[in-house]
Design a binder for these strands. Sequence first.
DNA 1: CGGACTTTTCGAACGTGTTCCGAAAGTAAC
DNA 2: GTTACTTTCGGAACACGTTCGAAAAGTCCG
Lengths: 226, 226
Amino acid sequence: MASPTASPHGRTGRPPLTSRAQIVAAAREIIERDGWERLTVRRLAAEIGVGATTLYHHVRSKEDLLVLVLNHYLGTIERPRLPSDPRDRIIAAAVAMHDAAAAWPWAVEIVTTDGFLGLLDESALWMVEDIVAAAEDYGCTPAQAIVVFRSIWYYTAGEILVRANTARSRAGDLRPASLSRLDASRLPRLAAIGDHWATVSQGDTYPQGLRALVDGLLAQAGPAVS
Amino acid sequence: MASPTASPHGRTGRPPLTSRAQIVAAAREIIERDGWERLTVRRLAAEIGVGATTLYHHVRSKEDLLVLVLNHYLGTIERPRLPSDPRDRIIAAAVAMHDAAAAWPWAVEIVTTDGFLGLLDESALWMVEDIVAAAEDYGCTPAQAIVVFRSIWYYTAGEILVRANTARSRAGDLRPASLSRLDASRLPRLAAIGDHWATVSQGDTYPQGLRALVDGLLAQAGPAVS
DNA sequence: CGGACTTTTCGAACGTGTTCCGAAAGTAAC
DNA sequence: GTTACTTTCGGAACACGTTCGAAAAGTCCG
């Protein structure tokens, strides 16, 4: 594509045929066309028309590549207008964060890696900023605000992960497979619940749990001066 | 080991050299001796003295194998004596669950898979039973109790996952890498926190967040009749 | 022009989990 | 004893992410 006619750089060395931007663009193309499971290093290289190992000179690893793609997607999300009430603002921001992650199942593979947030662009950190800011507006100290975000993040990441791996297999969720034939003497409450578990597990309890978590966290921080 | 002299079965077909129990035992041996990262299918097969692909006649997949090993470990945990107060009991049970998972980093690979709880033996389900029972004792309906467990599980699984992938890489946690040089005009609160994030992130905030979550969940369920 | 240096490209190879298919080793019936 | 059937075993092969080392294709300097 890029005509390698003249030497566009003042730099030395063999002129590159491939650019990081090109790789990311091709990866997005594959993800949207064939699904993210089809995104492999060799396929990506073939799509660009280049050797597989060449990619590793522009990207440290596949995970690194996914972070790049994720950052692009996060950049396209518009920062939502949030409620003025601090508590509602935290919840709204968390839900936005959750929905964004849930929309891209492949994000799960990255979301839990080392300093995940450290890999994000500034354009994506508004989620963190908004939650921390709202917590402080409520009356939290900076340290408390960090705990608030951390806890919300744990809860959200866990839900995303279970959700992603549940969707992958038909019969889902974390319900015990056959609650019916449990030993009622050792596990009476589970046995009593029985197949009711499946019914409840069908629904989306993320917002409910989130509200509980946020209320509990804010109650810890300060006695709701309002 | 098992002498294949006579025919111990009334069954037909070639008599097996390998048993599922033998495979699980060898897997545990490798995990304890060389670390769980060294547990590969080929190495496990070599340890037993059998072809690699043979294992797949006794175990559906490596994940399946790990579930078997995990069940064994969970079976060795003694069911803790829990406080009588329902709220404290939920927290104690959750902490026990968390500690168990945190002790075996390799459990993370399974913990989020499809119907995870459905893969567990009865000997490991007491954690679920205890939490559900305590929630009901507090005044929750069965449906509410399920939500309580689910939420706790999400939060716990998320923490475990982030913890595991953090420990893997030295510089850790989910803190933004260089909070110092953030654009203070767009992300003022994060910039203000700066490197304080690292300090707070060092500590273990799991119990704190857990208490907040449980308090919030129980407040949702009923107005604490005590 | 010709060598030194620098950067990019890529084929070969490794170790991973997993699938396929044929060979091995028993029992059961005739 | 021979034939059929059934189960277990394991070598070959595949796609995957990744590493290594050598070749390619430039610039720069003498």
